[in-house]
Nucleic acid binder design. Structure first.
Length: 545
RNA sequence: GGCCGCGUACCCAAGUGGCCUAAGGGGACGGAUUGCAAAUCCGUUAUUUCGUGGGUUCAAAUCCCACCGCGGCCUCCA
């Protein structure tokens, strides 16, 4: 098994990754979305990078137990943990939904009560899982299969894990790491954990109180140290609330992940991922809570953080008009494969720059890989026909699954490795070098561009296996089609108009009246339609915006 | 104010001391193909050049210093 070198935020070094207990698999926790709105492409870059890491581990032969939470507790707009100020995010989402409902813009099937925070969370969680599966997030794909079998979830919701949180907070209080302040809230005592600040570098003496300008002075006064953070907030008026020894209320933001990671993966875990903004305070607080509650000296051994995504060179924001959700792009006809590749091809520790041009670049690459895949499948079939075997050969299996070819198929071991088989080595090597996806993609591109003679000299089944192995990490081959139903349906009258023009043009072409044919093409262009003449006649599509 | 990351061709993006006269993709240009296009295929496309200015070294895109620019975190955020 080749070694994976991975940068660890905790040590600030690139280290050889080794699971603590390889027999039981790699335990991996990823901070997932908060579901009071649709996840945007920046969120997905982080989730997708975690997915590439997981898939790389699997390519290397590791078994991975991957957990990703879906946060459905409505936290506060101003401050999720310290003072509970501002407005509940679920309430904000509810108002947004109520407005959409009034304007008749609610998506089909969205009969939700804007006053019911659980329904809102469920609504957005469902949409997130749809997007995630389309983008090939394996944890979400697996979740669906697990649910069908009745297996326990690996995508936990905090609202269903409150007892585990209450228990953890209780043990923190019992061990003297947490206290109930005069305002009734339970806080973590940061000075009781000397390693606080080790992950982020924000040690207590360096923290500048209130630098984020979101601190409430009255709230600060009841805490023993300004950096103490909320574990439980009693609040009888909160939208979502549960009983606890400290009164009816809701949990702090950080405790959720500590409790769910422990519940599903154990006291210590191998890997923990999230966006770079999670390093502080969220992950720093998780370390403190988990170590203090379990008594273990460490929590996650390797911390994996993805840098933020920019759009067209600028910070993504709604006001700049460069804010995209995955669904927005699917509705424009962007394929999940192209979006996945665009979000994942820049190194995870660099700020990636998402551009529409880049998305097109990726689409072209995926198209070329798909063609190469189809050719290999065809050649492998021919081989099988030659060898007289007709049973299920596994070749029609959709890509993205087990790369090993079925034994029913003719594998010629005497042939030297072909372009894809050689590329797989370089591809794996690049990924093992701190997940160098760009270099891995380059290796694949070089294989695809190899001379035809080199391709013909290789064993197609082995070549296909190598290509599918590479795609088991890239995860694009089965996802290169526009999302059905994502784009608004074409107006039938418009379609009829276009088809009639195309028929007119076909007649002109048959009569070799090129001037008339080109006139019709101009008319179609004016309607925003591009025509392509292929062997099976003309096809048309909406011109790219 | 403190901590951290980045700056490579028209664009995206690898490369972190000699194999760099700098991967890969897109674009552009030339060719094949096509009635013309589109798509596809083939070829060309950074030659003291890697933000700027110094320094270390036999040797620097790669190490050090300064400056300029961009970005992240310092209790909303992936």
């Amino acid at each position: 098994m080749p070694e994976l070198r991975l940068h660890n935020t905790l040590t600030r070094r690139t280290e050889t990754f080794a699971p603590r207990d390889p027999a039981h698999g790699v335990t991996f926790y990823s901070c997932g979305p908060t579901v009071y709105d649709d996840a945007h492409i920046g969120n997905f870059r982080s989730f997708l990078n975690a997915d590439v890491l997981r898939r790389t581990l699997e390519l290397l032969g590791h078994r991975v137990v991957h957990v990703m939470n879906i946060t459905d507790v409505g936290h506060m707009t101003d401050d999720a943990n310290a003072d509970g100020g501002g407005e509940d995010k679920m309430a904000v989402a509810g108002r947004r939904i109520a407005e959409a409902k009034k304007a008749g813009k609610l998506p089909a099937g969205a009969e939700i009560d804007p006053a019911d925070p659980y329904a809102i969370a469920e609504f957005y969680a469902g949409r997130f899982l749809e997007d995630a599966r389309l983008l090939g997030l394996k944890v979400a794909l697996e979740e669906q299969a697990r649910a069908a079998k009745g297996a326990p979830t690996l995508m936990p919701r905090p609202t269903r894990c409150i007892p585990q949180m209450v228990e953890m907070i209780g043990s923190l209080v019992a061990r003297g790491h947490a206290y109930q302040a005069k305002d009734g809230a339970v806080y973590f005592d940061v000075r009781s954990f000397p390693a606080y600040g080790r992950l982020s570098g924000n040690t207590l003496d360096q923290l500048r109180e209130g630098a984020g300008e979101r601190i409430d002075a009255a709230n600060q006064a009841v805490k023993r140290h300004p950096a103490d953070f909320l574990l439980w907030k009693p609040d009888p008026r909160h939208l979502m609330r549960w009983p606890s020894p400290w009164g009816e209320g809701y949990p702090g933001w950080h405790i959720e992940c500590s409790a769910m990671a422990r519940m599903l993966l154990g006291d210590e875990i191998d890997l923990h991922s999230g966006g770079e903004d999670n390093i502080f305070p969220h992950h720093e607080c998780e370390v403190a809570q988990s170590c203090c509650a379990t008594g273990h000296p460490s929590f996650a051994h390797t911390w994996f953080h993805t840098r933020h995504l920019q759009v067209e060179g600028e910070k993504m924001s709604k006001s700049k008009g460069n804010f995209f959700t995955a669904r927005d792009l699917f509705a424009k006809g962007v394929t999940p494969a192209a979006l996945r590749l665009e979000l994942v091809r820049t190194h995870y520790r660099s700020n990636a720059n998402f551009t529409l041009q880049g998305l097109q670049d990726c689409q072209r690459m995926v198209d070329r890989w798909s063609r190469a895949h189809a050719q290999l499948v065809a050649r492998a079939r021919e081989d099988r026909a030659d060898s007289g075997r007709a049973d299920d050969d596994g070749l029609s299996r959709s890509p993205g699954h087990a790369p090993a070819p079925s034994p029913a198929v003719a594998v010629d071991e005497s042939l030297p490795p072909g372009p894809f088989e050689r590329a797989l080595a370089a591809f794996t090597d690049a990924l093992c070098d701190d997940l160098n996806v760009a270099r891995a993609v380059a290796a694949l591109n070089e294989a695809v561009a190899a001379k035809p003679a080199e391709h013909e000299a290789a064993c197609p089944v082995r070549e296909l296996g190598s290509l599918l192995a590479m795609d088991s990490v890239l995860g694009v081959l089965g996802r290169n089609a526009p999302v059905a139903g994502a784009a608004p349906a074409e107006d039938p009258a418009f379609v009829a108009q276009v088809e009639s023009l195309i028929a007119t043009r076909a007649a002109a072409r048959a009569a070799k009246d090129w001037a008339a044919s080109d006139r019709v093409r101009d008319q179609l262009a004016a309607l925003g339609v591009t025509v392509k003449d292929g062997p099976q006649g003309a096809t048309w599509s909406r011109a790219k915006p």
